[in-house]
């Protein structure tokens, strides 16, 4: 069975805000696909459209070869959906939540144990605790269990790792990889660029438009300029000064350092160094670094802005 997703020219408007602007996207059956973009990029809207919760203004989409508008009833049987907000019953215990979702889909927990087993063993010690009293990571694991209880063909996860600690995040991604091996198509939306590397392919999305769809590696390989990390005593002042510099292509604050690219292909680092020294930045560390997805995202989104 083809559990792929194909999206054609999909648009959605809320009042005067155009949340999605004619999106085209194809997700293969059995793929672990990432939807990477900042808050407000339109990720949740796209998910709700795919989950048959919203109707598109223009365009169409098909899940498992079923149209999202006409075939919404069939799709609801094939789909596992985890909304961005924790959406389980907080006043029900872990096991009660799971049982409820099992009965809603007319199935039983025992029949689906092979599907959820890896996740279930982690939350089983807390099965009598009320869902509202679980930690953030546990809540997400439970929500994933509930979304998987009916053996869906397609899994839509809207920011599943937001507000979850680093250890739980990596555990969560490990689970997704295991699920992928069972042949489920998984689409994950996330604002964390570092999670993009864990997907097979990613779509970079911003302001309702898809900037690029590619494998994480290829996106990084496309980065054509040399990227430098600059560390100084006063990063913020340094950022302002670099924006004034005549050869600056882009400069962003990136954690503890600044990521800098030059407009010229060949240039001497010394020039940048001396410019900054002249502005009073004495303790500088400049080194060449490999670009990450975030650098690519920044480069792509400024490029997109430039065309407007």
């Amino acid at each position: 069975m083809n559990a792929g997703i194909s999206i054609e020219n999909l648009s959605k408007t809320y009042g005067s805000v155009q949340a999605l602007k004619g999106i085209n996207l194809d997700i293969n059956s059995g793929e672990l696909f990432g939807l990477i973009g900042p808050d407000g990029a339109g990720k949740t809207t796209l998910f709700r459209l795919l989950a048959t919760l919203l109707l598109p203004d223009i365009g169409s989409a098909r899940l498992c070869d079923i149209d999202i508008v006409e075939g919404y009833k069939q799709i609801r049987n094939l789909l596992g959906y985890m909304p961005g907000k924790f959406s389980l019953y907080q006043d029900l215990s872990v096991i009660e939540n799971l049982e409820f979702f099992a009965t809603v889909f007319d199935t039983r927990i025992e029949d689906n144990m092979d599907m959820i087993h890896d996740i279930w063993v982690q939350i089983e010690p807390f099965k009598d605790r009320l869902a509202g009293n679980l930690s953030g990571g546990m809540k997400q694991k439970l929500a994933l269990c509930c979304a998987l209880i009916h053996q869906p063909k397609v899994l839509l996860l809207d920011e599943p790792t937001t507000g979850v600690d680093a250890v739980s995040r990596s555990e969560f991604w490990q689970m997704l990889k295991n699920l992928k091996s069972k042949g489920i198509t998984i689409v994950v939306a996330t604002p964390y660029m570092d999670e993009a590397n864990l997907c097979e392919r990613v779509a970079l999305i911003k302001d309702g438009e898809i900037l690029q769809v590619n494998t994480p590696q290829e996106i990084v390989d496309q980065f054509e300029r040399k990227l430098y990390a600059i560390k100084s005593d006063d990063n913020y002042q340094c950022l302002l000064d670099l924006r004034e510099f005549e050869f600056t292509n882009s400069v962003f604050l990136f954690g503890q350092t600044l990521h800098y690219t030059d407009v010229r292909k060949e240039f001497s680092l010394e020039e940048v160094n001396s410019y900054l020294k002249s502005k009073g930045h004495l303790h500088l560390e400049i080194e060449h670094v490999k670009p990450g997805i975030e650098d690519c995202f920044m480069a792509l989104s400024t490029k997109a802005d430039g065309y407007e």
Binding site: L53, N77, Y81, P83, F86, C146
Partner: peptide, 13 residues
């Protein structure tokens, strides 16, 4: 309000 309706709607109920 709690968003659980979203899940109920997505289910076959």
């Amino acid at each position: 309000e709690l968003g659980t309706m979203e899940i109920l709607l997505v289910s076959p109920l």
